[in-house]
Design a protein around this nucleic acid. Sequence first.
DNA 1: GTCTATACCGTGATAGAC
DNA 2: GTCTATCACGGTATAGAC
Lengths: 204, 204
Amino acid sequence: MVDINPTRPRRDSYTVETLLAVTVKVFNERGYDGTSMEDLSRAAGISKSSIYHHVRGKEELLNLAVGRALDSLFGILDEPAAAAGPAAARLEHVVRRTTEVLIAELPYVTLLLRVRGNTSAEQWALRRRREFDHHVAELLAAAVRSGELRADVDPRLATRLIFGMINSLVEWYRPEGDDKGADAEQIADAVVELSLSGLRVPRD
Amino acid sequence: MVDINPTRPRRDSYTVETLLAVTVKVFNERGYDGTSMEDLSRAAGISKSSIYHHVRGKEELLNLAVGRALDSLFGILDEPAAAAGPAAARLEHVVRRTTEVLIAELPYVTLLLRVRGNTSAEQWALRRRREFDHHVAELLAAAVRSGELRADVDPRLATRLIFGMINSLVEWYRPEGDDKGADAEQIADAVVELSLSGLRVPRD
DNA sequence: GTCTATACCGTGATAGAC
DNA sequence: GTCTATCACGGTATAGAC
């Protein structure tokens, strides 16, 4: 008989997937470098050496986590609404979806955003993040050229500030209850509204 | 004869201040936990044990750095333009000055923003940061109540997003050349403009 | 104020039994 | 698939000479 909820780690028998979920939680609490294999074994409820049965070591756990986050983010760029139509509408879609994906994959994206580039695998993650940002900056620049967005703010700078706004979610957002979807909706609205229309009351 | 530039660390004879400058740089590159005393001694050009002559240990260096960043930030709230006048104008001043201070004290604020709360000193730093944010959220809420800002965005959420935008500077901004002040001005303008008016072209 | 030498402990990782 | 036992290494920190 198959387990009803395969994403929740069960004591007695881990898979890489369930072990990863526990691991990422601890990494985010204590930082990657601040987490020892001892910490992980305690959190998972198994011995250190049992962890090595599932993965090569600590760094492999990090790679699996950030890889998953990157896949989710790049998936957004392939969505129809991000690939065709007026540039400003495509931008709005990417901004909204990035916010939603960040919330849906919160632990994994959190870890991705904290990677500093100490190892070569981390540097690869940083390069892919820059690639994603660059793609969005292109979109924003196109919207400026077509007159849909203001020309008096540097597209690169604006892109960075908007991502700063979105990415900062990992610093404070904590899912509560079962209406995580509604939460995400409300926050995504605020992000889109703030970045496109601003806080000031409209004059008309 | 007194040294011309006491903020630049000289080989042969460190002070706590000059040692701190080197330390913070390395902490930001490799992460606090990822930095060993060996790393610090190599970067400073003195032996490990010489470092212990100046400070009690690694954690004291962290405390000194984040304390300095917090002092700079809280100094903003005492400025006249932040303490009196219409709420929206006070908010705009705090947003602009926070951006400027962050750029002026970049290495120290960067370290502050990366603190995760592993030790009690780090938890204290997190509490003070929240205190600062709370103060600004109050300002924003007051501006909403007086009708100066839109009422359809939650003040707490808006505050967090704006700080997210500002704080994200530490992830990518690198001072270049000698016009650091001009840089700061341009970025602060963009932050204020984006958060208050948004990217969309005005309709009037 | 700096050095060399070293104590001591926690770390990531392995061996081999069950 | 998990365990206990153990290893080699690198970490923070200290002692004491110059």
